[in-house]
Design a protein around this nucleic acid. Sequence first.
DNA 1: CACAATTCAATTGCGCACAACTCAATAGTA
DNA 2: TACTATTGAGTTGTGCGCAATTGAATTGTG
Lengths: 153, 153
Amino acid sequence: MTVDAENLLRLEHQVCFALNNATRAFGAIYRDALRDLNLTYPQYLAMMALWEHGELTVKRLGELLRLDSGTLSPLLKRLEAAGLVVRERSPLDERSVLVSPTSAGTALRERAALVPAEVAARAGLDADELRQLRGLLGRLTDRLDAADAPGKC
Amino acid sequence: MTVDAENLLRLEHQVCFALNNATRAFGAIYRDALRDLNLTYPQYLAMMALWEHGELTVKRLGELLRLDSGTLSPLLKRLEAAGLVVRERSPLDERSVLVSPTSAGTALRERAALVPAEVAARAGLDADELRQLRGLLGRLTDRLDAADAPGKC
DNA sequence: CACAATTCAATTGCGCACAACTCAATAGTA
DNA sequence: TACTATTGAGTTGTGCGCAATTGAATTGTG
C-alpha cells in the first residue's frame, strides 16, 4: 500500500467519520430536547414541514426531507397513531396520500417553538458559525449527490 | 410565536438537517465504493480500527468508533460470520472479548485501500476543504458532547 | 378504446443507533 | 473472607434509512 493511499484513506475516513459523529451528537441533543414532545428528530422534521405547508402528499414530503416511502410510511403511521396527523387518499389522484396536521398536531407547534432555543443554548453555537457550517455542508451534499446519481446510469 | 423563535428554529433546523443530509450523501458514495467488499460503512470503520491496532476489546473498539455493545455485538457477529474477524474471551479478564482480524480480514485491507481514492474522486473534494470541514465538525461535536453529557447529571 | 409504461404508496427485509435490561466476571470494601 | 458495587458483553425492542418488490391508479401511445 502506497503512502498516498494511506494518507488519503486517513483523511477521507476522518471527514466522513467526523460527519457521522457530529450528526449523532446533534441527534443526542435533539433527543433530549424533543423528549417532552414525544417526537423523534425525523418526526420533528416531518411536523415542521407540515406546520409550514399545512398539507402535503407523501411524495412531496419525501422530496422535502429527502426520504422515500419506505421510511415515511411507517413514520407517518406513528404520527397518525399519536393523533398528530391524518392521512387520506387524494380525491384528484387516488395514488397520492395527503398528510395534514390535526388540531393536536398544530397545537404542538407552540411547544416545539421552544426546542431550537434549547438546542442552541446547549450547543453554544453562534449564528455565524451555523451559517458557515450550513453553507459548507450544503455544497458538500450537492457535490456528493451529483457524484452519486450519474454514477448509477 | 415570536419572530426570533421562528428564525432560530429555521436556522437550527437547517444546520442539523444539512448535517444529516451530508452524512447520508456521503453514506451513499461509500455504499457504492464498498459494495465489492461486501462491507457496510460501519463495518468498514471497524475493520479500519482492527487493521490499525491488530487486536481490540469490544470496549476499546466502541470507544474508538463511539459505539456501544448494542451496536457492536451484532456487527462483529456479522463480520465473524463473513470470516473477517475472530472473537475470543480475554484470558486476563473473562468479561472482555478480544476481536482480531483473520487472514482474510487482513487481506481485505489491500482492496479497501482503493476505496478512499474512489470516494475522493467522486466527491471532488480537495485536501484543504476536507481539513477545514473536519476541524469545524470536530469542534462542533466536542461542544455538542460537552452540552449533552453534563445535562444528564 | 385497449394495452403497455409509469407513478405513488405501502410492505418486506436488512443493518445501524440507542435505550433498557440481563448475566457473568471482577474490583472494592466492611 | 463475605458482600456489594461496578464493569463488559450480550440481548431485546423501537425507530430510522435504504433496497427491492408489490399493487393499484394514472398516463401515454398504438
